[in-house]
Each structure stands twice: as structure tokens, then as C-alpha cells.
């Protein structure tokens, strides 16, 4: 499959999903660099979303099934102001660990957006319209990054995405460090003796 296409089942949430919902504060204590503890970020990803808003339109859908660490939903569709709240990078990290490849929302809180891009965790994509009501959790979805388009395969409807713009260089490089190495701003890993 082309790198510029992301497909899978979608998990749908609404407007203003904040970082406390994405990963509740009490879980911020695990070491992100320990493989065992890192998995816990996946386990608790999206666990702060209120029950009735977990997996719209019906709600009550667990993002992570009991006893597992990864989600069956690689794509999240939300509304306005996704990722508002704290500066915690644990938020996009938790989604990445849970297996999320892309989030589609109409707007983002800037720190979440920045963290997703600079940390290379996932692709934060902006939809031109607020589209979460056109998706049901579990629908099959395809994102085409070349055509800037998201398609709900279940309903057959497509929606326009905004081009990545300036962020594309950093996303395509794989994050801020990779980008800075590419443009020669910091030493390569070999030179830095990492």
C-alpha cells in the first residue's frame, strides 16, 4: 500500500476532545522509554473520553478492548479544537502507541498539532468542514494524502482535507530532529555518536 494512503476502521469523537480525555493525567507517570511501561500509554489512550461520547454516534465503544494495548481503530475522526488542554506530548504518543496513524479534525489546539508533527507521532489532518457527524465508529475509511481527501467507504461519501502546508516537510522527514538533520542544522546521529 502506498505511504500516502491510510485505511482502516474509524473511531469517531466530537468537538473539543482535550488531552485529559486522550490520556488522563494520572497515567502520565509511566516512563515513555521503557518498552513495558510505554505500552500502558496505549492501554489507556482515549480512556478519559466520557462514556456517551466514546465512539459516536452511539457512544459506549471502547477504544482499547479490555486486556489489550492496541486499538482496532487506526484512524480517529473528530470535530473542532482536537487536543486542547495541556502541553503533554503523552497525548499524541499514547495515540501512536495505540496504533493510530492519522487524526482528522476541523481544527487542532496548536500544541497538540505541533507535538504530533515535531515528534513524528501521527498525521494531524485538517478537514475543510466539520465532518465527524458523517462518520460512524467502525466505518471503513480511506485517507488519500495525494488527493487531500478522506472517504467513508461504508457510506461512499468523500470529504476534502487541507493540504499539510509548511508542516509537510517535517512530517515527511519523520519529525523535528530528522528534519533538522536533513537541513544540516544539527549533526547526524553518526557524528553525534548516538
Amino acid at each position: 500500500m502506498s505511504q500516502n494512503r491510510i485505511t482502516g476502521k474509524v473511531y469517531v469523537v466530537g468537538d473539543n476532545v482535550d488531552t485529559d480525555q486522550i490520556i488522563p493525567a494520572k497515567h502520565l507517570v509511566y516512563d515513555t522509554h521503557s518498552p513495558e511501561e510505554r505500552k500502558l500509554y496505549g492501554k489507556y489512550a482515549m480512556s478519559g473520553v466520557p462514556e456517551e461520547k466514546s465512539g459516536l454516534p452511539e457512544g459506549g465503544v471502547k477504544f482499547i478492548k479490555e486486556g489489550t494495548f492496541e486499538s482496532e481503530f487506526p484512524i480517529i475522526v473528530g470535530g473542532k479544537n482536537f487536543g486542547c488542554g495541556s502541553s503533554r506530548e503523552h497525548a499524541p504518543l499514547a495515540l501512536q502507541v495505540a496504533g493510530v496513524k492519522a487524526v482528522v479534525a476541523q481544527t487542532y489546539a496548536r500544541i497538540f498539532y505541533r507535538n504530533s508533527v515535531d515528534g513524528g507521532f501521527l498525521k494531524p489532518l485538517e478537514s475543510v468542514e466539520n465532518i465527524f457527524k458523517s462518520f460512524s465508529t467502525g466505518d471503513h475509511v480511506e485517507i488519500d494524502l495525494d488527493a487531500n481527501k478522506i472517504t467513508n467507504k461504508t457510506s461512499g461519501k468523500s470529504f476534502e482535507l487541507r493540504p499539510l502546508g509548511d508542516a509537510a516537510d517535517i512530517i515527511n522527514a519523520g519529525g523535528l530532529f530528522a528534519y533538522a538533520r536533513k537541513i544540516g542544522m544539527i549533526k547526524s546521529k553518526a557524528e553525534a555518536n548516538v
Binding site: S87, E89, I111, N115, G119, L176, A180, I186
Partner: peptide, 30 residues
């Protein structure tokens, strides 16, 4: 600052804002 309310310091007429860990690590080095 690695905290979203770093913007508090704008009260002093400075540019102050919150960032994530990757950005902060980048600053630590550069």
C-alpha cells in the same frame, strides 16, 4: 516551557508559550 500555561508570563510583555517534550529537547541541545 513544557507546560501549556507557560503563556502566563506574557503578563511581563514577553513571548512565552508552551511546547511538548520533543521541542523542549531540541531547545536543550540547540
Amino acid at each position: 516551557g513544557t507546560d501549556s500555561h507557560t503563556c502566563t508570563a506574557g503578563a511581563f510583555g514577553e513571548f512565552a508559550t508552551g511546547i511538548g517534550n520533543t521541542d523542549a529537547a531540541f531547545i536543550l541541545g540547540t
